[in-house]
């Protein structure tokens, strides 16, 4: 093992310290997670609308999306977008007269992949939240002359969100952890950056522990934020 002073230097911001790269990598992790989760929310809303459709074809489409994405490893989906994305981009560039091999930036690929995975789980969250809505309250809205849009905006969306929030909190935690898989396609997020540091200092135990602590703390802090929003939105439902 090593002396604490050396440890501090390694993790510090001075010369030879990995503090700054690690901090900015943590920023990348959070950024990718937020974008991925956001994309997932959009896909989740679309997926839930598909699955709730009256028609068989959209329902089938939505069902296929959630079954496939939730049934295969996340890393496989990341590889798919990684290889597929670069194949597609290279194709376009070659048509445009630029020879050679191109690949999409890791962040873009990663956000899309995390988003697609997160979207499948958010589809379920939104769908089951929607199904928990009280039909009577929606009817009451219609009976007051609310248009479809108004009903959606004033009654359905707020209540669905309220019911979906606990599940969304869990899905956010998953998305956060999933960003670590983006290290394998070259995105310098927290895990990759600690891997680099571990390699060049021969201190894997130290650096991976630091990464673990960082992931844990980010999860804790954001979890607490979610809980606060939840508490706020729960207020009407408490007796």
């Amino acid at each position: 093992m090593m002396l604490p002073l050396e440890t501090l230097q390694l993790l510090g911001f001075g010369p030879g310290g990995w503090g700054l790269p690690l901090l900015s990598a943590a920023g990348v992790t959070v950024f990718a997670a937020i974008l991925g989760f956001g994309l997932g929310s959009a896909l989740g809303v679309i997926g839930a609308s598909l699955k709730l459709s009256r028609h068989i074809f959209p329902r089938l489409l939505g069902q296929t999306y959630t079954t496939v994405v939730r049934g295969v490893p996340e890393i496989l989906i990341i590889y798919l977008f990684y290889f597929g994305g670069s194949l597609w981009l290279t194709g376009i560039m070659n048509i445009g007269g630029f020879d050679g091999f191109y690949s999409l930036p890791g962040l873009a690929t990663g956000v899309i992949a995390v988003g697609v995975v997160s979207g499948a789980y958010q589809t379920e969250a939104f769908r089951s939240a929607y199904l928990r809505l009280d039909r009577g309250q929606i009817e009451a809205g219609r009976s007051c002359g609310m248009s479809r849009g108004l009903l959606l905006r004033r009654i359905i969306v707020p209540q669905t969100l309220h019911f979906a929030l606990p599940a969304l909190g869990n899905i956010w935690q998953s998305a956060l952890k999933e960003t670590s898989l983006l290290s394998v396609i070259g995105l310098t997020e927290l895990l990759r950056q600690t891997g680099i540091a571990a390699g060049s200092t021969h201190q894997p135990l130290l650096f991976f522990s630091v990464a673990a602590a960082a992931f844990f703390l980010i999860g804790r802090i954001t979890g607490r934020l979610v809980r606060r929003v939840e508490d706020h939105m729960n207020k009407p439902w408490r007796r």
Binding site: D134, G136, Q137, E139, A140, G141, R142, S143, C144, G145, M146, S147, I155, P158, Q159, H162, M233, P236, W237
Partner: peptide, 19 residues
């Protein structure tokens, strides 16, 4: 939508908006 507000409904289960 306009006419509905003229014949207002009161439901068995109240159906107040809970949020």
């Amino acid at each position: 939508d306009r006419l509905r507000t003229q014949v207002a409904m009161v439901f068995q289960n109240f159906c107040l908006w809970h949020h």
